[in-house]
Amino acid sequence: MSTTHYLVLSAILFSLGVLGVLVRRNALIVFMCVEMMLNASNLAFVAFAQQNGNLYGQTIAFFVMVVAAAEVVVGLAIIVTIYRTRRSASVDEPSLLKY
């Protein structure tokens, strides 16, 4: 398959991730959509690695995975803390920074 197909797939997955972030209210689902976006970008990197004929893309994708894991850890800890204090996991709850 040509690289174009993989990249189009990556674009679709990324867009769906963005849509999820914008539309869903549950913090966990929003976080999962962010993970989806990261995965889409990983796919793009790996596709380009094959396109360019070297392994740099794969290396970067590897690092992205590591960092994403660390980020998930911290993010979920935050969500748990928020849930403990506010008893709600909605992203619309903290909305005091308004006019």
Partner: peptide, 9 residues
């Protein structure tokens, strides 16, 4: 993949 993404959404 796309079905999975849509389902997640």
């Amino acid at each position: 993949c796309v079905i999975g993404a849509l389902g997640m959404l």
